[in-house]
Design a protein around this nucleic acid. Structure first.
Lengths: 117, 117
DNA sequence: TGTTTATGCAACAAGTTAGTTGCATAACGA
DNA sequence: TCGTTATGCAACTAACTTGTTGCATAAACA
């Protein structure tokens, strides 16, 4: 099984960068925030309140879909989008790892300073 | 005190998007990962191992610096860069909020299904 | 069936990003 | 002081991103 096709293994760095990049746009971050209610929303619904065309919102949704942050189900003539929180959890794990290494560094520094008293 | 100058208040969405965007590049994510050791590194040190020029790495470091993910201290002729984990913690908080709302949705769904047994 | 509503697709423009090269400056060290 | 090392600044290019408009399609519905 390849790393990228697994749902449990650690993502490679480039995949994490893509998820970060997908969230690195204010419009997309607002869409994610709105979809965090857990409900499915149509494109027209999601586009309401943005000073952008429906097509622009569609493009943003496709970017989010591309990294697995949302998925869409077509019901009749509507595309219902829903959040998939898994990629955000992967980012949380990455951030936690970086924070841990940083904290370990602070501990080493603290021990060094205490041992030289 | 304005929201953006505070060190404790919640960031506005556009600031979060900028931090996500800063991490949304594989080269910058590698730099952050390398700097997670807590040590300060010069630009030349950080550029080693990348198939890029020193100037390209410098630009990436300035992007990270722009959102507060790193800071540099000039010692002699060297610029020493060091990680600042605070912005990543802000992202962790954002992700946790989205996850919580998502979990609340699942709970409501579960309760609804159980009540209709 | 004819109209309205929801979406998809494609082409285009403008702005941003990521990278390069060339040159300048300034600190180290023999 | 002179050569080497570390960095900064500016101009330029290529590619990508973000947004638009116009048109096509397909479902809902009176």
């Amino acid at each position: 099984m390849s790393q990228s096709s697994s749902n449990t293994k650690t993502l490679v760095l480039s995949e994490k960068a893509q998820i970060f990049a997908a969230l690195g746009d204010e419009t997309r971050l607002k869409l994610v925030t709105r979809l965090a209610d857990g409900e499915a929303h149509s494109i027209t619904q999601l586009a309401e309140g943005f000073p952008l065309t429906r097509q622009a919102i569609t493009k943003h949704l496709r970017v989010l879909e591309g990294v697995g942050l949302v998925h869409s189900v077509k019901t009749g003539r509507e595309s219902q989008f829903q959040l998939d929180p898994k990629p955000m959890d992967d980012l949380k794990v990455y951030i936690a790892e970086v924070s841990k290494r940083w904290d370990d560094h602070l501990d080493r520094l603290k021990n060094f300073l205490e041992s030289s008293d």
